[in-house]
């Protein structure tokens, strides 16, 4: 990363440290942090073979940081799994490898061999791209390594149907989610028992909002992909979305030339599917400022949600995270 994060790293250290506690109420970030750590430890104490799904976005960065805190001085006792589509931003691959190394964790990268063979891409295959690389890819990886619990960085505030998702979400042997058959979660007593073949998706940052994530990243000096900060980048406009031309695979239309625009991303995914926003926010405080003053929701930049209001729920039932 550039000087931006090192600057915030300096200011961030220690705000959740001892001096801020006396006989006073914990702050919202302290409570959220403690809850997430509690959840992660419950998993590690009970699971046979847990894994953390790592998508390199800001939520994943936050979750990874919490895991480091939860198990310190030991490294988090599970590997990171990236279900890759081969279409992520270059900058994401760079940070992914560095973050795993810094945390002292094994990094597993899975590519759906079938999608690889068929050359599935977001330009020619539409929603099949997400289905095959992500939904199918995830199921393949979980089955291949025999993981019984997978941490995911989903938040309840992201989308209406996620508001009802449990922290511990049970999947059948076929990785399907049944919204009618989830266990009640009382106090902080998570029932982690499962039948043979069943697996659990666990969402330790369920109760964090986008603003909480940003504030925590700021406070703790967590390293994130530079794409979250504004810089001049080559872009084209497609279907009302500003798309960054991240590599030579991008099929330009006849006569179309990428235009340099000062842009950044509020959310990161496959680069051809992720809309940028024009912005001058070059530091974390500026990003947070922009986010607080903005008038559109976070997921709007993702092409995947535009089909219908309940699309995310359908994807989830099929096994998409």
């Amino acid at each position: 990363m550039t000087t931006r994060t090192s600057a915030t790293a300096g200011s961030g250290q220690g705000t959740l440290s001892p001096d801020s506690f006396s006989r006073s109420t914990l702050t919202h970030l302290q409570r959220l942090e403690a809850e997430s750590i509690h959840i992660m430890r419950e998993v590690v104490a009970n699971a046979e073979n847990p894994v953390m799904l790592y998508s390199v976005g800001k939520d994943s960065a936050c979750m990874l940081h919490l895991a480091k805190k939860a198990f310190y001085p030991a490294p988090p006792p599970f590997p990171l799994l990236h279900v890759d589509t081969t279409w992520k931003f270059k900058a994401m691959y760079d940070l992914r490898d560095k973050a795993a190394k810094d945390a002292g964790m094994e990094l597993l990268v899975h590519h759906n061999p079938e999608a690889m063979e068929k050359g599935i891409n977001p330009f020619d295959h539409g929603s099949l791209h997400t289905d095959m690389w992500k939904t199918e890819g995830l199921k393949q990886a979980l089955t291949k390594y025999n993981f019984d619990v997978a941490f995911g960085g989903a938040r309840r505030d992201e989308e209406k149907s996620r508001a009802k998702e449990r922290v511990f979400s049970f999947r059948t042997a076929n990785h399907r989610w049944d919204p009618k058959n989830q266990r009640p979660e009382l106090w902080k007593l998570y029932n982690t028992r499962k039948a043979k073949g069943e697996s659990i998706r666990v969402f330790p940052i369920s109760n964090w909002t986008e603003l909480d994530i940003w504030q925590y990243i700021h406070l703790e000096g967590i390293e994130i992909v530079p794409l979250y900060f504004s810089a001049p980048r080559p872009t084209v406009e497609r279907n009302g979305l500003l798309i960054m031309v991240d590599d030579e695979r991008f099929p330009l239309q006849p006569g179309e030339t990428p235009v340099m625009r000062s842009i950044r991303f509020r959310t990161l995914g496959c680069y051809p599917l992720t809309g940028a926003v024009e912005s001058e926010a070059q530091t974390l405080p500026e990003v947070i400022q922009e986010m607080l003053l903005t008038t559109t929701s976070e997921r709007q930049g993702r092409a995947i949600d535009h089909d219908q209001s309940a699309s995310m729920e359908k994807k989830k039932q099929e096994g998409y995270f």
Partner: peptide
């Protein structure tokens, strides 16, 4: 704004516990 699952939207009823978030300058609320 808060009725989430497709099935319940059609039935017009809430059928589960849902957690919502908002904040003021003093507090975060769940």
């Amino acid at each position: 704004l808060v009725d989430g699952l497709a099935a319940e939207r059609e039935q017009g009823i809430t059928i589960d516990v849902a957690y919502r978030f908002f904040a003021t300058d003093k507090r975060k609320f769940i």
